[in-house]
Simulated assay, not measured.
Amino acid sequence: MLKNSGSRVALVTGGSGGIGRAIVNKLAENGFAVAVHYSGNKLKADTIVNEIIKNGGNAISVGGDVADEKSMKEVFDLVEVKLGHIDVVINTAGIMILSSIAEMNLDDLDQLYRTNIRGTFVISQQAARRVCQGGAIINFSTSVTRTQLPTYAPYVASKAAVESMTMILARELRGKNITVNTVAPGPTATPLFLDGKDKQMIDNFARATPLERLGTPEDIADTVLYLATIGRWINGQVIFSNGGLA
């Protein structure tokens, strides 16, 4: 893969997942060279990369545990070597484990926090060191931080940490012309969201928004594209992309 002569470069962690894949495709369609990160499924990431290249775009796949600082340093190094630089880092990588507080397995809690909190910190640290001036760092939270649904407490606590981390990093990068924001999707039709929910529960989530539907990964990708390109006056914010969910 040759370095870019002029294209902007984005690294998308969790880029082979539902929302991550939609973001990768949206960025590629809009002229970005994209590094598609995967944690375990290299074949899936490589398939996405091959599709982008077939359509005339520029992409590579990169793998590793987002919570492992050595592995992520190597990922950022590889992106810079293969694609020349990094303009945008979008961190969609995360896991969701649902349980009441009373019943939560603490080993599961540690796993959740390792990926969602430590992983976001590791990615944010590398991004703060690597992203070019005029670039953007975009993390991911959830609208459930406001809706307070039962059994979501462990997950929401991890995402509340992401929101706070993001707002502070935006201020720490003063003078570097780098925006740092968090996107907080509402109910979105991805495998992660749909897993374990019956039709009635899914329909209830859809009716909860004034638009009376679930979001799509493409809805979220549109928000990310805006923040990654022309949304330069939005900084240190949590953007709720949720169709009006209260």
Rank of each mutant, 00 (worst) to 15 (best):
L2G: 06
N4T: 14
N4C: 00
S7W: 00
S16E: 13
S16K: 05
R21F: 02
V24C: 15
V24R: 06
A33H: 12
Y38E: 13
Y38M: 11
S39C: 04
K42L: 12
T47W: 00
I48D: 10
V49A: 02
V49T: 10
E51F: 01
K54M: 03
K54P: 00
V62W: 07
G63L: 04
G64L: 05
D65H: 12
V66D: 03
A67K: 13
E69P: 00
K73N: 15
F76S: 02
D77G: 08
L78G: 07
V89L: 03
G94H: 07
I101V: 15
M104S: 14
M104L: 15
N105E: 14
D110P: 04
D110H: 05
R114H: 08
R114I: 06
R118E: 00
T120N: 15
V122T: 12
Q126F: 14
R129H: 07
R130A: 13
A136I: 01
T142W: 10
T142I: 05
T142E: 08
V144A: 14
T145D: 10
R146A: 06
Q148W: 14
Q148C: 15
L149Y: 13
L149N: 14
Y152T: 11
A153N: 03
Y155C: 05
Y155T: 07
A157C: 07
S158P: 07
V162P: 11
E163W: 01
M165Y: 14
E172A: 05
L173R: 11
K176M: 03
K176P: 03
T179K: 00
V180D: 02
V180Q: 03
V180T: 11
N181M: 05
V183I: 15
G186H: 02
G186D: 01
P187R: 01
T188M: 06
D195V: 12
D195G: 10
D195C: 08
G196K: 13
G196W: 12
D198H: 03
Q200K: 15
M201Y: 14
L211E: 12
E212V: 10
E212Q: 13
R213N: 12
L214I: 09
T216W: 12
E218A: 13
D219A: 12
D219W: 14
D222V: 10
V224E: 00
L225S: 09
L227E: 06
A228R: 04
T229Y: 09
R232Q: 04
I234K: 03
F240D: 09
G243Y: 08
G244M: 03
